[in-house]
Design a protein around this nucleic acid. Sequence first.
DNA 1: CGACAGATTGACTGGGTTCAACTTAAGTGG
DNA 2: CCACTTAAGTTGAACCCAGTCAATCTGTCG
Lengths: 268, 268
Amino acid sequence: MPDHNPLLRKLAALSPLSDEDRRHLAQVAAHPVAVPARTDLIREGDTPRGVFLVLEGMACRYKILPDGTRQVLAFLIPGDLCDLDVSLLNAMDHAIGTLSPCCVAHIPTRTVGDLLDGHPGIARAMRLAALVEAATARQWLVNVGRRSCERRLAHILCEMLVRLRSVGLASDVGYDLLLTQVDLADATGMTSVHVNRCLQSLRKRGLIEIRGRRVVIPDLAALEAAADFDSGYLHRATPDPRPDPGLRGTALPDAAALRDAVPPEARA
Amino acid sequence: MPDHNPLLRKLAALSPLSDEDRRHLAQVAAHPVAVPARTDLIREGDTPRGVFLVLEGMACRYKILPDGTRQVLAFLIPGDLCDLDVSLLNAMDHAIGTLSPCCVAHIPTRTVGDLLDGHPGIARAMRLAALVEAATARQWLVNVGRRSCERRLAHILCEMLVRLRSVGLASDVGYDLLLTQVDLADATGMTSVHVNRCLQSLRKRGLIEIRGRRVVIPDLAALEAAADFDSGYLHRATPDPRPDPGLRGTALPDAAALRDAVPPEARA
DNA sequence: CGACAGATTGACTGGGTTCAACTTAAGTGG
DNA sequence: CCACTTAAGTTGAACCCAGTCAATCTGTCG
């Protein structure tokens, strides 16, 4: 059974899956549907009736503000799912929509529950995927809150490389980014005008090349350095697994140690 | 058994708890420990050995960038816990530290697992709390990405009122905010200088009053309007439950409906 | 060949940062 | 109880990054 299914491929990269797990996951994506670009899968306020699995194309979570501006909260690429427990809530606090033409499968709440309850291997992998999505959201907050605009873009481009590669949609040096500069702007809290200028600056610095939709990264290490990017939070196997950093002082590992907590001077 | 335990109080507000559930939760917070201000509970890179429960004071999740700047990812107030599945990961991608003197309980991984597996009522409430934390993180991203600085501050002040009220730490008109302006700056992606000026502006507009640590909100509706704040994402019972907005067109509720998706024109 | 979305460019403006000084409040130890 | 210390808050002035507005260019598709 080849890893044709991006969900399978992504989850397998996070946690080992048995053949039976793989079979069940394959069934989940059995009924894909084509969705045009710029189409909502679910809107803010809607009651979730399950989760969506992206099989092809790019989608995003987003919110529209009263003044009409949009904030993209996350990009969804093939293999992305998550929102496992979302059925506990009765209204979406954000929308999910396609950015490019997509191929999407809908997984009813019940099926999700069955996977979580009856298949510990799948449950573990999906919980891990959810943790990684949360970690990615944190990176985005740091991105928008504290990084310069050029760094923000570089960071997102690095992130997309790692993520797309782990589902076989990127080579070592580049990938097709099915996004407009407006989409990038809404994800990074910038203006599309300024996205344009920053991309040009990155190009002039030789950190990226853009040919149509294709993004080429000639020197990944250089881009990562410019982006302050560390792929650790994505928990993917990387081409160059860095050596174990060794023992680092652990702050307050347990209740006993809480009694002599790290003194304030230890903080910057 | 009074709602002395803020965790109990918070979870009960999210989902009904049996007396047995309450007894178990009370035990969890049985061994609190005092921690001074500005102290790390766990650092980035550390291996989590359980979760922390804040019983008193304010703490935060944060990251430090290479240039020394800090981004606060979330404020933790009494009753906050979450990170349920964090033990699946072997390294924290961010740190957690106190901002004010705190009273904290450490809950070992095993105990968390027992609560999740053996007590469906508690599991449900804790999963809900985790979803609310994720929704709050999304609001923060919108805040930093797309709102003016004055709005950001107003939004955070509204959020803190709702959250603190739900654990009995705020009256209807105000609360003690155990944060410095630097903390607020690091949470909103601003400078402490500019936080100061924006707070003054909010004061001049009559939206807030500040006396020492005390924040007073004379006209909540006005502040919420200025902040573009809607407490819905916190899923707390609010004093003025707004009427059901009625039927709104649901986009793509199931696989069948996917076939005729919302046309692009429906999007702004 | 239009028509249109997306990308690009220029000029201007302004919100927010930076840097630095100063004030206030809250300890802390002699 | 007060001098000393330190953290937090406040203010001013200069600067600049990024937004705004608007025009133009480019590719793509019917």
